[in-house]
Design a protein around this nucleic acid. Structure first.
Lengths: 226, 226
DNA sequence: AACGATCCTGAAAAGAACCTGAAAAAGAAC
DNA sequence: GTTCTTTTTCAGGTTCTTTTCAGGATCGTT
């Protein structure tokens, strides 16, 4: 687990890094908002501890910039202030949790653990395949920075395709069974229609994933990395 | 904020409910220990006012049963007796505070406020989201220089939406649970009606915050800074 | 090349979810 | 009681989803 610490006060920053390293995290500190943003955008961290008061960009600005870029890296925000509006502002700008100084080391570690745990749970209801990720609770499919909403049946079909073993082919009958139910009236063309809907959305997303018809057999998902 | 009143004396019970509703809490009364326990276990309340002398289960028994179930709902215990041993027994059985009859309404309200405050970051006096701020004690929603009054249910719906994690979607069922209660007759259209009321007010306020319907999933709050 | 089987997709129809104005019902305030 | 506000209910309209249909495209086979 890699954790990025963004804190301008050198003593605190290195204390945090040492504390986290003591817990077998890989911690790294930077000392201003812009570097914090840049490092976080590299995408190599699993969580971020972010002070609000920073030279250059404030913690709020860093957090909302990150969210605007679509990064869902967990953020624990630190501040000396203890105002409700700050807390709300912090959470609004995209922080996942908020801790006011001074705090005990146990408190900080507990929050970091909770953050990482929550992050794990979040990934449970997200499926990925190739450059795609399907969020099951928001019913959205995204690729890079684009995102579309899926209807219930679109989502079901996509979920089934994405959770297939690699290059496995699934028949229309099986899809009908899983999406419409065993005793439904649905016909092959229903599946074809939804495949068509999904292809349109994949095209819009500019994804490198394709739904390929395997004549007479069914469909499979193919990812052709450029 | 939903508060459960468990008091067998009808006059006092309804007086308490009215008093609490006058402070913009959503209050509900039941009249015996077993119902008190059942209602509290539903998990839809933020605090509980519990008389000690009750038909069936006593207040002590209700409190300790709740704690045994792992609920940390704040409990304010009421009693006519003024014995130290009762007080100790009350606190031991899991009550958070203890008030002996007779008491003034101010005293009761102060204790309820303290209870909710202690409960955690819950009882904030104002919530903000985007350009909006919701004043909970004045029941007003404001944006820039404009301001509107919200009815009790409007306020509850808005409060719940505003205290959601960013871009989180809340289902109509969950809103019904939190605003109308789990055992209510409320249907989806009730929520829709309140969303409509609130949208009208947001429009009047000229706010950049929107209540967005996420078809079949629920609602979320979106802030589109121009 | 010709044929049948399969697949694709635009468009229309049917269905479900959501929105909202208006009025009735319930509750508060006077 | 009367008036005002709040809450619930209802009905019709809008929008999105799902199904259906029909014609065209593609593929494998002969």
């Amino acid at each position: 687990m890699r954790i990025l610490v963004v804190e301008d006060e050198n003593n605190l920053a290195s204390a945090l890094v040492k504390l986290l390293e003591g817990q077998n995290y890989l911690a790294e500190a930077v000392h201003d908002g812009q570097s914090g943003l840049d490092y976080a955008l590299s995408g190599q961290y699993d969580a971020m501890i972010l002070d609000v008061m920073l030279p250059g960009l404030s913690g709020f600005e860093v957090a909302s910039a990150l969210r605007k870029e679509g990064l869902d890296l967990p953020i624990l925000m630190l501040t000396a202030r203890d105002k409700v509006t700050d807390k709300v502002r912090g959470l609004d700008s995209g922080a996942d949790d908020y801790l006011t100084k001074p705090f005990t080391t146990e408190e900080l570690l507990a929050r970091v653990r909770a953050l990482l745990r929550r992050q794990g749970a979040v990934q449970m209801d997200t499926l990925t395949f190739g450059d795609l990720s399907l969020s099951l609770d928001a019913s959205t499919l995204s690729c890079q920075d684009r995102q579309v909403r899926l209807s219930r049946k679109e989502q079901e079909v996509m979920r089934i395709l994405m959770s297939l073993p690699p290059s496995h082919i699934i028949s229309k009958d099986e899809l009908i069974m899983k999406v419409w139910g065993a005793d439904s009236e649905a016909v092959d063309n229903n599946v074809e229609a939804y495949v068509s809907f999904l292809r349109k959305k994949l095209f819009y997303l500019n994804s490198a994933v394709q739904i390929v018809a395997q004549r007479r057999l069914g469909y499979s998902l193919e990812y052709t990395a450029c």
